[in-house]
Design a binder for these strands. Structure first.
Lengths: 217, 217
DNA sequence: TGAGCTATATATAAATA
DNA sequence: TTATTTATATATAGCTC
C-alpha cells in the first residue's frame, strides 16, 4: 500500500526573480494579499499609519493605506505634505474612527476599485488640463511669465475643486455607503479563516486600489 | 520531576491595539522588520516596484522602497507625479540596475539614516522658507495676489534647487559610495539566517529611513 | 484566472539573558 | 533597549479542481 503524501507541502524557494510567468503571477497575488494583511495587522496592533503601493508585473498599482491612501494621493496632488494635524486629516480620521471599525480586505478592495477607477479618471483629466495650460512642474520655474502663472492658477483652482470633491466622496464612502462595514458583528466572509476581529476602539483599516498616473506631461 | 516546557511558545493574539506600551514597542519592531522583509521578497520574486512608509508609535517614519523611496520623496517634494518614464526616473533606475544588484537590509538602512537625516533637515529648511513667503498651499489660491505669486516663485526656485541637488546625491549614492553593494558575493551579515540571496539580473532593494515633515504651515 | 488542500517553511509571542 | 531561544501560529509552494 502506497503511503504517498497527498502533496509535498510548501517547498523552500530561492529569493530571486521567478522565471515561469504563470507561476510568478500566482505568487504575486498570494504574497501581495499576505503583505497587505500583515500591514493591516501592524497598523491595528500598534495603532500606526502605513501607506503602501505595489505595482503588479503588469504595472497595475495596488495600494494599502491607513487611514487611507487617499490622503497620500492628496499629498501628491496638492503638491505639499500637509501637516498631519490639518483639519482635513483630522476630519477624515475622526469620521472614520467613529464609523468604521474593521473592513474586510477582499470585499472592500473590490468595491474601492470601482470608486478608484472613476476617481483616477477624473483626476487625470484635471491634471491634463493643468499640464496643457503649462507644463510648469517639469519646466524651470524661471521661464514662467506672470500671465502664465495666472493661467496656471486657474488650472490649479480647477484641480483643487476636483480634489475637494473627491475628499467629500471619501468621507461619504467612509460613513454611509458600506453597511457591512459600519458596525461590529461581522462574521465569516469568503475564505477568511476566522471571523473578523472587531477592533472596538482603534483605527480603521482601509484597502484601496487605484491606477497610477502614467504620463502627465 | 517537572516536565514544564521552557516557554509557552508563540501565542495567538487578537488583532487589536496592544495595550501594554512596552509590549507594543517590541511587536512594532519585530513586525515592521517582518513586513519589510516580505516586501523585499515580493519585490525580488516578482520584479515589481514597491513603496511603503510606516510611522512608528512615536511618529517616526520608516520606509521601504524599490527601486528607492527617494523617487517617492521627489514626487512629494516636486508636487507632481512625474511620469514613470520621465528621464529622471529612467536615469535613476538605469544607474541602479547597472550597479546595485542587492543590498543588505540592515546595513543599508543604517547608512541611509545618516544621509536621510541630512536630507530631511535641508528640505524642511527650504520648505519653511516657502511657507514663510506665503502659506499658499493651505490658503485658497484665489486669495493670492500676483506679487505674492512672484514671491512664491522665488521660494519654489530654491526648493527646486535643493531637490535637484538631492537627486544628484541619490545618483552618486547609487553608483559609487557603497562598495559593498556594488557587486555580487555578499555573505552572511548580522543575524540574517542565511547568506543573502544574490539576485543576478533583477532589480535592487533599497531600504531607507527618513523623518516626516511634521507641520509646515 | 481563482479557490481549496496539504505539508512544510517562516514569522513571531513570551520568556529570558 | 536589543538579542536569543522555544514552541506555536501563520503564510505559502505546489497541486488539483
Amino acid at each position: 500500500m502506497v503511503n504517498r503524501k497527498p502533496t509535498m507541502g510548501r517547498q523552500r524557494i530561492k529569493i530571486e526573480k521567478i522565471a515561469k510567468k504563470s507561476h510568478l503571477q500566482v505568487t504575486f497575488s498570494k504574497r501581495r494579499a499576505g503583505l497587505f494583511k500583515k500591514a493591516s495587522e501592524l497598523s491595528t496592533l500598534c495603532g500606526v499609519d502605513i501607506a503602501m503601493i505595489v505595482f503588479s508585473p503588469a504595472q497595475k498599482a495596488f495600494s494599502f493605506g491607513h487611514p487611507s491612501v487617499d490622503s497620500m494621493m492628496l499629498r501628491f496632488l496638492t503638491g505639499s505634505p500637509p501637516p498631519p494635524s490639518s483639519g482635513l486629516h483630522q476630519l477624515i480620521e475622526t469620521r472614520r474612527d467613529a464609523n468604521v471599525h474593521e473592513q474586510n480586505m477582499q470585499l472592500t478592495q473590490t468595491l474601492n476599485q470601482l470608486e478608484a477607477e472613476k476617481k483616477k479618471g477624473e483626476v487625470l483629466d484635471q491634471m491634463r488640463k493643468v499640464d496643457r495650460s503649462q507644463c510648469c512642474w517639469e519646466a524651470p520655474i524661471e521661464e514662467l511669465e506672470l500671465h502664465e502663472l495666472e493661467q496656471l492658477r486657474g488650472a490649479l483652482e480647477e484641480l483643487k475643486k476636483t480634489v475637494a470633491k473627491q475628499v467629500n466622496n471619501i468621507l461619504i464612502q467612509s460613513t454611509s455607503s458600506l453597511p457591512f462595514l459600519a458596525v461590529n458583528g461581522v462574521g465569516e466572509v469568503g475564505n477568511l479563516e476566522t471571523k473578523l476581529e472587531i477592533d472596538n476602539a482603534s483605527a480603521a483599516l482601509h484597502f484601496n486600489n487605484f491606477g497610477y498616473a502614467q504620463k502627465i506631461c
